[in-house]
């Protein structure tokens, strides 16, 4: 039985262990992750092949997280670099710019973009007393723009996406910035499909730079930096 398992693949708990290990090794360069994963995988196969039970093999290995901690320590000893990204790094600064851009644009759209509002009666006559300059916020407040929640959501969505991406940490942060790029791109496309070319251009202008910044943040190297140790 164990021969079959070794040949066709590892038992489920061993695969789960290796998946957890691969995740826990996330801050390390690929070559270092590979070497630790290969060593542990070969160890599990060997020990199972010798007749040990999966549970006992995994207990003897220690937790995936403790192995990953050891790998980070050895990486740091070998290279003099830290395996943990700084909280404030280039990627996060780019993300902050993306967030700041969307926030300024959202505030401008709500409070700064003045349009001329007027009341037109049934006969098509303009009431001169009703002509006034108003912002989107005024329109939302007096109910002329509706539904208010949909407009607020549309204006605030890029800001919310970039803020959440900025506040995540660890592995979720790396996944979050990629997800933020997809969501911002989807937001631009959705606006264009739903409301036509002028809105697409507006969304591109409001959200495009933030999208570029998030993509750049996902592309800059972050893993290891040289430290004075």
């Amino acid at each position: 039985m164990s021969t079959t398992i070794v040949r066709t693949g590892l038992p489920m708990e061993a695969r789960a262990f290796l998946t957890r290990l691969r995740r826990a090794l996330w801050p390390l360069p690929e070559a270092d992750r590979r070497e630790t994963l290969d060593g542990v995988t070969a160890h599990i196969e060997d020990a199972l092949g010798a007749g040990a039970t999966p549970a006992s093999v995994l207990v003897q290995l220690g937790t995936p997280e403790s192995i990953a901690d050891e790998a980070a320590e050895q990486f740091e000893a070998r290279t003099g670099r830290t395996a943990r990204p700084r909280l404030l790094n280039l990627a996060r600064m780019l993300q902050f710019l993306a967030f700041a851009y969307t926030l300024v644009l959202a505030l401008w759209a709500l409070f700064g973009d003045v349009t001329i509002g007027m009341h037109v009666d049934q006969g098509g006559e303009v009431d001169p007393a009703s002509i006034r300059a108003e912002t989107m916020w005024d329109e939302l407040a007096d109910g002329t723009a509706s539904p208010a929640w949909a407009i607020l959501l549309t204006v605030a969505l890029p800001t919310v996406i970039t803020l959440v991406a900025l506040l995540l940490t660890g592995r979720a942060w790396r996944i979050g910035m990629r997800l933020a790029s997809y969501l911002l791109a989807a937001f631009i496309l959705w606006t264009g499909i739903r409301e036509g070319l002028p809105s697409l251009l507006a969304a591109l202008w409001m959200t495009g730079p933030a999208l570029v910044l998030e993509v750049a943040a996902a592309l800059v190297p972050y893993r290891a930096r040289v430290t004075a140790r």
Binding site: L61, G62, S66, I67, E70, F75
Partner: peptide, 16 residues
């Protein structure tokens, strides 16, 4: 501390 922590150590000794 656990058998698994051998492999990161081996990786460094091999690199050295």
């Amino acid at each position: 501390a656990g058998e698994g922590s051998l492999y990161p150590l081996l990786a460094r000794l091999r690199a050295a």
